[in-house]
Simulated scan of single mutants.
Amino acid sequence: MIGDYTYSEFFSILAMQGFAGLILFSVFVLMALGLAIIFGQMGVINMAHGEFMILGAYVTYLCSNFVSSYAPALFPIYFFVAMVLAFMASFALGLLVEWAMIRHLYKRPLDTLLATWGLSLVLQQLYRSVFGAREVGVTLPDWLMGSVALTDIVEVPINGLFVMGLTLAITVAVYFIMFRSGWGKRVRAVMQNRVMAGAVGIDTRKVDRMTFGLGCGIAGIAGAAFTMIGSTGPTAGQLYIVDTFLVVVFGGAASLLGTIASAFTISQAQSTMEFFMSGSMAKVLTLLSVVIILMLRPQGLFTLKIRQ
């Protein structure tokens, strides 16, 4: 016996909370990948990142309603179309925001923090005016419903497995874009030495705009995935922005591997502790642990070695 649980019940609980943590980990990674690109590569503190995620969620909601009303035969596959549209909408808004506001604030992190925080408030009010203050949810196709029984006690939701698979695919795609493509080399060149990158013919302004747009587009995909595990409201993005920044800073701002490792550590710790204590206490203990580790290792779990 462990407390009030038998060994079988205890380990089954750990397994179920572990899978719940993997689903939370998937959302963290999708959010943090976009933020790591924007913050880690560009040094821009984007406090409106959660609102880009919610834009993707609302696009998915609109797509769900449209297909169910006007093209019900396509409903089983609408989610794939919704993810593409969510990416395009958030990507386009990201390009607009970078052109209209962010490009004037490079090398001024406090100003970008304040400006994007104001942008987040504007977008929240816009969502509230268009979609209403009440939370909305999407209707999932039948093949995403139900669960897979691993044991007599442990069951894994199918939509959670889909989100994890989606996260793996997006992570691999981001890796190849950032580290195995010519455009990724240009991005890293601009990050390491903007003046020299411009001197060899790289259009640094275009790289900045496309990088910011890509980070926002990935947040839109995270919003589409978010609709599977939670309801969407105007302020839902703010529930994840602090955790997402925590994941990026804890893992190492410019490290893709660090972002993944940090998201896994924080999500598993938070999910497991939430079962044995209150959600607020679990978050407090997680934050305290991360703060203590960052005091000992302020550069995060992983750092890129850059020759000075």
Score class of each variant (00 low, 15 high):
residue 278 S to Y: 10
residue 225 A to K: 09
residue 235 T to E: 14
residue 196 M to T: 12
residue 275 F to H: 13
residue 251 G to C: 12
residue 230 G to I: 00
residue 253 A to L: 14
residue 226 F to K: 04
residue 213 G to F: 06
residue 278 S to P: 03
residue 219 A to G: 11
residue 209 R to W: 04
residue 223 G to E: 09
residue 254 A to V: 07
residue 273 M to P: 01
residue 255 S to T: 02
residue 266 I to N: 00
residue 205 R to Y: 07
residue 234 P to A: 12
residue 208 D to E: 09
residue 253 A to Y: 08
residue 206 K to G: 03
residue 200 V to K: 06
residue 226 F to H: 09
residue 280 S to H: 13
residue 272 T to W: 13
residue 241 I to R: 11
residue 254 A to P: 01
residue 281 M to P: 00
residue 208 D to C: 06
residue 265 T to R: 02
residue 275 F to K: 12
residue 257 L to R: 12
residue 212 F to Q: 11
residue 250 F to R: 11
residue 271 S to T: 02
residue 258 G to F: 01
residue 245 F to P: 00
residue 278 S to W: 03
residue 267 S to P: 01
residue 280 S to W: 10
residue 250 F to V: 01
residue 270 Q to V: 00
residue 222 A to R: 11
residue 255 S to D: 02
residue 215 G to F: 13
residue 218 I to Y: 05
residue 256 L to S: 08
residue 243 D to E: 12
residue 214 L to F: 03
residue 212 F to R: 13
residue 193 N to Y: 03
residue 245 F to M: 09
residue 225 A to Y: 03
residue 201 G to R: 09
residue 226 F to D: 02
residue 278 S to K: 12
residue 194 R to D: 09
residue 224 A to Q: 09
residue 224 A to R: 06
residue 245 F to S: 02
residue 214 L to Q: 06
residue 271 S to A: 15
residue 210 M to D: 05
residue 245 F to T: 05
residue 232 T to K: 06
residue 237 G to K: 10
residue 229 I to K: 04
residue 192 Q to F: 02
residue 215 G to C: 05
residue 208 D to S: 15
residue 260 I to S: 04
residue 218 I to D: 07
residue 258 G to W: 04
residue 206 K to L: 15
residue 218 I to M: 08
residue 205 R to P: 01
residue 197 A to H: 03
residue 262 S to Q: 05
residue 219 A to Y: 09
residue 222 A to I: 07
residue 247 V to P: 00
residue 235 T to M: 11
residue 261 A to V: 14
residue 219 A to V: 07
residue 253 A to E: 09
residue 209 R to H: 10
residue 224 A to V: 08
residue 253 A to K: 14
residue 259 T to N: 12
residue 193 N to L: 11
residue 249 V to C: 07
residue 201 G to D: 10
residue 248 V to W: 09
residue 269 A to N: 00
residue 277 M to I: 14
residue 222 A to C: 05
residue 216 C to T: 14
residue 255 S to E: 05
residue 274 E to Y: 00
residue 278 S to N: 14
residue 254 A to M: 06
residue 258 G to V: 04
residue 211 T to N: 05
residue 244 T to P: 02
residue 246 L to S: 10
residue 236 A to H: 07
residue 216 C to G: 07
residue 194 R to Q: 14
residue 245 F to L: 11
residue 215 G to R: 06
residue 240 Y to N: 09
residue 217 G to K: 13
residue 242 V to A: 14
residue 262 S to Y: 01
residue 203 D to G: 08
residue 240 Y to S: 04
residue 236 A to V: 09
